[in-house]
């Protein structure tokens, strides 16, 4: 455990030195998501004052609630996307030749990929997190059943996001092409996970695909707990699914790391890019 903590500390320090205060973090984690949120909100606005909207989607009855709904989506998506970005940066280790060194060191492999994701998550999202807390408090759009639900929502966002990040990082042991992460996990991810659209509006097939991604259930918990004042029993379904998905992702990571390292030892592909 102490060993793993030291690895995590070292990685976090590295990420801090590399990213903190960099313009890319400010733009990709705050300015672009905010502008994109405004675009989504205004595009949806013409559909709100239609007859019968109250029965179809109660959230849309007030623009503030719609904005809170979409903002929660944008915020959670940013968490997951920051890990996609971190996995992309992990592939730079190949280019700079340090990937091989990491795997020659006695550090636990699992701690390495976990630490890479954790460090990136902290460096990337603290700024947007502060803004989100300030905006939610100022707009008064939070409706919470009891204070404990804040912790539930935070954990339901952070833990699956980390499991997702470690999984993506371990995937990159196999592939030298990291651009596919961006292409595959940017637009399709926000679409199937219901980031900019409520789940009831989607066809069943897309909903089913969406359930395979932890972001979908994270969002369900986040929105239920923070916006709709659901008690713990109200979000038990998505929480259970999140637990299962996390276990699967962790198991997948462990397997992939083992196979990937064995493969790299055989083929010597760790410094190729």
């Amino acid at each position: 455990m102490r060993h793993a903590l030291r690895v995590i500390g070292a990685e976090a320090f590295k990420q801090h030195r590399r990213m903190f205060g960099g313009p890319l973090v400010v733009f990709s984690m705050l300015i672009w998501p905010a502008l994109q949120l405004a675009i989504t909100y205004y595009t949806m606005l013409p559909l709100l004052e239609t007859p019968g909207i109250g029965e179809r989607w109660p959230v849309a009855a007030q623009p503030v609630r719609l904005l809170a709904f979409l903002a929660t989506g944008a915020f959670a998506y940013m968490f997951y996307f920051s890990l996609v970005q971190s996995a992309w940066h992990f592939s730079f280790e190949r280019i700079s030749g340090t990937m091989e060194l990491l795997f020659l060191s006695p550090a636990s492999r699992f701690a390495l990929v976990l630490a890479n994701g954790t460090g990136a998550l902290v460096q990337n999202t603290w700024l947007a997190g502060c803004f989100a807390v300030a905006a939610a408090t100022a707009s008064g759009s939070l409706h919470v059943a009891h204070p404990g639900m804040y912790a539930v929502a935070a954990l339901a966002l952070v833990i699956p996001a980390l499991a997702w990040g470690t999984f993506l990082n371990s995937l990159l042991l196999f592939s030298r092409d990291s651009a596919f992460l961006y292409t595959l996990l940017d637009d399709p991810l926000w679409f199937v996970a219901g980031v900019r659209l409520p789940l009831f509006a989607m066809p069943v097939v897309i909903k089913a695909i969406g359930l395979a991604f932890p972001l979908t259930s994270s969002l369900a918990v986040l929105r239920g707990a923070l916006l709709d004042a659901e008690p713990l029993s109200g979000v038990a379904g998505p929480l259970g699914l999140l637990g299962v998905l996390c276990l699967l992702l962790v198991a997948g990571t462990a397997t992939l790391l083992r196979i990937g390292e064995a493969r790299a030892q055989r083929t010597g592909s760790m410094q190729l890019y």
């Binding site: 559909l47 239609t50 007859p51 179809r56 989607w57 509006a201």
Partner: peptide, 10 residues
């Protein structure tokens, strides 16, 4: 699903 096939008058 949200607009019910319609759009606001404005």
């Amino acid at each position: 699903a949200i607009g019910g096939g319609r759009v606001s008058a404005w």
